[in-house]
Amino acid sequence: MNFERLCNKLLNSNPKIRFTGILNSRGSLIAHKSRADAASLLTDDEVKMSVHYTYDRWNRLQNLQHRLGKVRETVTKYDNVITITLIFENNLFLISADPNSNSRKIVSELWKLIDKKQVKPARKTAAKKKTTKRKPARKTAAKKKTTKRKPARKTAAKKKTTKRKPARKTAAKKKTTKRKPARKTAAKRTVRRPSRKNISKLKPKIDTLEKRVNSLYQKYKK
């Protein structure tokens, strides 16, 4: 649907209409038209405020739809203007008209225009789409060239087998160094004390040694 054209048709449907606009389900003003000779009663900021209040009022009215049914239209009469809101398929049609206008007549005319725009005439089925015949499939006789693979090489010519060297004979073992046998533990020497007889034999020798030592000592003193 072209909303700009619809706003023009709604505006031209009655000379008493001053303004037409359409709000989407998000509350954005997606299209609007004003009568050329109609002086604006609100500033730009006040127009935005009025749109916000209208959208907020519609959301509140939906709270009772489960009891009262869907809201279709609202008409508010002020001293200087009449505002009309039509609800159709989640869109709000905002209309303002002169205060001395017939609001019922305007509403009925607006609904007729909106319903006509929604019902699209069915297209004629006589002019069917052109049927594009598909080309016949190519004959399968002309098959693709089969590329023969080269035969695998003969396995007779095997790879040269490298013979491993035989392991060294284990006969030539490492030289075994024989350890020397541990020395025999000699029999412990037993120190024998000389007997009294031997002491008596050694006395004269000891005496002669003492004399020599004394004589040497005397010579050394001199």
Rank of each mutant, 00 (worst) to 15 (best):
I82A: 03
F88R: 11
F93Q: 02
V75H: 01
E73V: 00
R72L: 11
D79M: 05
K105D: 10
H66Y: 11
Y78M: 13
T83N: 15
T83S: 15
T76S: 15
L92D: 01
R67T: 09
R104Q: 13
L68P: 01
R72T: 09
L92E: 00
T83Y: 08
H66M: 13
T85H: 09
K70W: 00
A97R: 09
G69R: 02
L92Q: 02
V71I: 14
V75D: 05
V75T: 13
V81W: 08
I95C: 04
I95Y: 04
E73I: 00
D98N: 14
V81Q: 12
Y78L: 12
V75E: 06
K105E: 13
I82L: 02
S101T: 03
S101A: 14
R67K: 15
P99Q: 07
A97G: 05
L94G: 07
R67H: 12
K70D: 06
T85N: 15
L86H: 05
A97H: 03
F93M: 06
E73C: 08
T76M: 13
L92N: 01
K105W: 06
S96W: 05
T83P: 03
K105H: 04
I95W: 07
D79Q: 14
K77P: 00
T83W: 10
R104M: 10
K105P: 00
N90Q: 03
K70Y: 00
L86V: 14
N90P: 00
P99F: 08
I82D: 02
L92M: 03
T76F: 14
F88C: 07
S103V: 07
H66N: 14
N100M: 08
N100C: 04
P99Y: 05
K77F: 07
K77N: 13
V75C: 09
I87F: 05
D79T: 10
K77M: 09
L92R: 01
D98R: 08
K70I: 08
K105Y: 06
V71S: 08
E73N: 06
N100H: 10
T83V: 11
L68D: 04
L68C: 02
Y78R: 02
N90S: 15
T74Y: 04
V71M: 12
K105L: 15
I82G: 01
L68A: 12
K105R: 10
S96A: 14
Y78V: 06
V81R: 12
I84P: 00
T85I: 12
L68V: 15
G69N: 03
S101R: 03
F93R: 07
T74E: 12
T74K: 08
E89W: 03
F93L: 03
E73H: 07
N100L: 12
K77I: 14
K70T: 07
D98H: 07
S103M: 01
P99K: 12
N90I: 02
G69C: 05
D98M: 10
N102I: 10
V71G: 04
